[in-house]
Design a binder for these strands. Structure first.
Length: 434
RNA sequence: GGCCCUAUCGUCUAGCCUGGUUAGGACACCACGCUUUCAAUGUGGGAACACGGGUUCGAAUCCCGUUGGGGCCA
């Protein structure tokens, strides 16, 4: 608790929905603040009025809440500080370090020397001042540019650590010169490597799914997304642990261990991670989650106990919850398939028919009460011994029940389908072969 | 084009600071086992130090250069 005064901020522009890169920046800011007992603050940088997108601010706030990245202060909006920026621009003109130019105010960038600073992630960085031009700090419409506004607010909000994307490194001489002109102390900086698309370029909306909301809507768990994003550019120093809760991340995250090079955002590992989280949850939790999400799974209604059983069957096969509806459709309507699918290896039509007729016969002999997975398995596996291989009995049966090449096993399915429906599906298959 | 950042398997990365490893893990991929199918699971496998020079007995690791990638500005 020694660093009680540490203050970080996440300062997005509301020019679009929160994307994965933004989420990671917010997360790292949050983790660093929390692990030091400090404060995490949200600031909305809404001074570029032309690029504002409706609903973006709400989406950013809502998404941060969803992930549990609760901010201690804010949201603070820059558009409410217009007077402050104007006064400060004025002050710089008075001091002779800024001047008016076609209605705008420009800051006089020192032309000689080098700017040196320490970045927590990159170490020492040196940039010659002559690479920078005099730059606009206040536009003719009275709105400040990023160059001025972000650092005024960081100062006023007493931000101690600025953790943001790499893309600002080359403008650091501007920010440092401006701090000098105001006589303000510099915060510490940590510039995060960019998250790149498959084409190695900065992730952009044009590539489709980059909004965090899209992933949420697509059936990825928030825990999985957060976990995945945390590992894009960071790795625990003394272990190979990969599954982390937010609390664990707060304990183990180290800003100095953040990678210097950009990371490609590739969803293959996210899929795996999501399936890990799906398997960790109980079917009941998954069902509740689906209900909350307004997913039509299970409608029209069957008994709710069955829904949990159905989820339990597919659980180890799911990468995303959104696959559930399609994968379990045969529980809710009669399967449709081609008769050839019933064929196992080199069986001919007659053999298939005989196999299915035996199945029907065996099923009819089981009472409703005994129509359980265990019982059915015992009965069928015993009879399957009469065949060259079990598949001759079990494959046609399973296809008759599901209409699918791939599915869970027939016994667990039949327990859920119950006797009458199981038999009728087998009967339908037999009829197809006539 | 100028400036800046950056470089280990296909991807995310450990190792680099403090030279000596069969260069480790995870995902993905392949094979095998289990198995009626698909998963899950178990075992095994292929797969990387961008390149060129130094320094050194010895370089992924230190230095220089080149190339590639990215960013910012124009």
């Amino acid at each position: 608790m020694s660093n009680i005064h540490i203050r970080t901020r996440f300062a997005p522009s509301p020019t679009g929905f929160l994307h994965v890169g933004g989420l990671r920046t917010a997360l790292y800011n949050y983790l660093f603040a929390k692990q030091n007992g400090g404060k995490f603050i949200l600031r909305i940088e809404d001074t570029d009025r032309a690029r504002l997108v409706e609903g973006a601010e709400e989406n950013i706030i809502e998404t941060l809440r969803t992930f549990g990245l609760d901010f201690d202060e804010g949201p603070i909006k820059q558009s409410e500080h217009l007077k402050r920026y104007k006064e400060l621009a004025e002050e710089l003109i008075q001091k002779g370090v800024a001047y008016e130019d076609a209605g705008a105010v420009r800051f006089k960038m020192p032309k000689g020397g080098v700017t040196k600073f320490i970045d927590i992630i990159h170490g020492e960085i040196e940039i010659e001042n002559k690479t920078q031009e005099d730059f606009i700090i206040l536009k003719s419409d009275g709105f400040p540019t990023y160059n001025l506004a972000h650092l005024v607010d960081d100062h006023d909000m007493e931000i101690t650590h600025v953790i943001r994307g790499d893309e600002f490194i080359s403008s650091m001489p501007k920010y440092i010169a401006l701090h000098g002109a105001f006589g303000w102390e510099l915060p510490q900086y940590a510039h995060l490597p960019l998250i790149l698309g498959k084409n190695r370029a900065k992730l952009s909306k044009r590539e489709g799914e980059v909004a965090v909301k899209d992933f949420l809507d697509d059936g990825y768990f928030k825990e999985a997304i957060l976990n995945f994003v945390a590992l894009l550019g960071w790795h625990p120093s003394k272990s190979d642990k990969e599954i982390f809760t937010l609390e664990e991340l707060i304990k183990e995250f180290k800003l100095e261990d953040v990678q210097k090079a950009g990371a490609i955002f590739d969803t293959a590992k996210l899929d795996w991670m999501n399936s890990e989280y799906i398997r960790q949850k109980s079917p009941r939790e998954l069902l509740a989650y689906l209900k909350d999400a307004g997913c039509p799974f299970g409608r029209p209604a069957s008994k709710s106990g069955d829904l949990e059983k159905i989820i339990a069957l597919e659980q180890p096969r799911l990468k995303k919850l959104s696959e559930l509806l399609e994968k379990t459709d045969y529980f809710f309507r009669e399967p449709e398939y081609e008769a050839v699918l019933l064929e196992w290896k080199n069986m001919d039509n007659n053999q298939i028919k005989n196999s299915l007729e035996l199945s029907a016969e065996l099923l009819k002999a089981v009472s409703d009460k005994d129509f359980t997975k265990e019982n059915l398995e015992k009965i069928f596996l015993e009879r399957a011994k009469d065949f060259k291989d079990r598949g001759e009995l079990l494959w046609p049966l399973r296809v008759a029940l599901t209409g699918r090449k791939a599915s869970p096993g027939p016994f667990e399915i039949m327990e859920i389908l119950e006797k009458e429906k199981s038999i009728s599906r087998v009967q339908n298959a037999i009829n197809m072969l006539k």
